[in-house]
Amino acid sequence: MTNPERDTLARLARFGSTLAVALVFAGLAFAMLSLPAEPTGLAAAVRAELPGTGAANPVTAVLLNFRGYDTLLEIAVLLLALLAIWTMRRGQLRPQRDPGDVLESLASIQAPVMLVVAGYLLWAGGSAPGGAFQAGGILAAAGVMLVLAGSGWPQRLSGWPLRVALVLGLSAFICVGVAVVLGGQEFLAYPASGAATIILVLEICATVSIAVILLDMFLSVLRGRASRTDTTASIDQP
């Protein structure tokens, strides 16, 4: 194929996709504007049932109780993605280049603060916005910062302790669910009296797993980068 032909094709593809996407946008915008103004959702039902859920924050109640099954599966998705990444992981983690004084001192001040914030978010999740995902995310971010600042200890988590931390969240969900079934109730139906405790335990386990999985995903990407620069090192080095 000659170049002018290819250019014409590319221009056609660009034009065609722009047109198609514009049509999609028009259709969706029309659909959106036609939605009824009054809310139709389950907000009222959630509010009515909230006292029995063990969580005062409606979002937490939905995530951990009403639709706890979705959350169980989503932690499974997270763990599965990490396993998938492990099968593709090559190369060794190399120590970061000198991070510089600023990053190092910032990390040493900020990491403990982030730890406290994560703990607060986890605790507050019961009654205010917050919860396992936010706390896990912040913990993972603290870990990433420590790694970038040259601290070796996030990588020291390996072997059995690492594996247990990874599966903690999903196992906790499964154990609670199965225990309830063996007690004669539906899967993941918490007894109203212990619901708050169960949710707190589940959130703590989920936070640990989420934080460790996210951090390990980051480390895996870092490894991939290190192994790639290996192959091109001779070109890039002065």
């Binding site: 979002v59 939905v62 995530l63 998705v77 990407v221």
Partner: peptide
């Protein structure tokens, strides 16, 4: 605000993060 879509967003974000991480590592491979 209706809490159910909020919960859906959190679930969606986690799924998106997982898929993105996988896609990045695949690209590296």
């Amino acid at each position: 605000a209706d809490p159910v879509p909020h919960a859906m967003v959190i679930t969606g974000i986690v799924v998106a993060v997982s898929a993105t991480a996988m896609a990045i590592v695949l690209t590296q491979r």
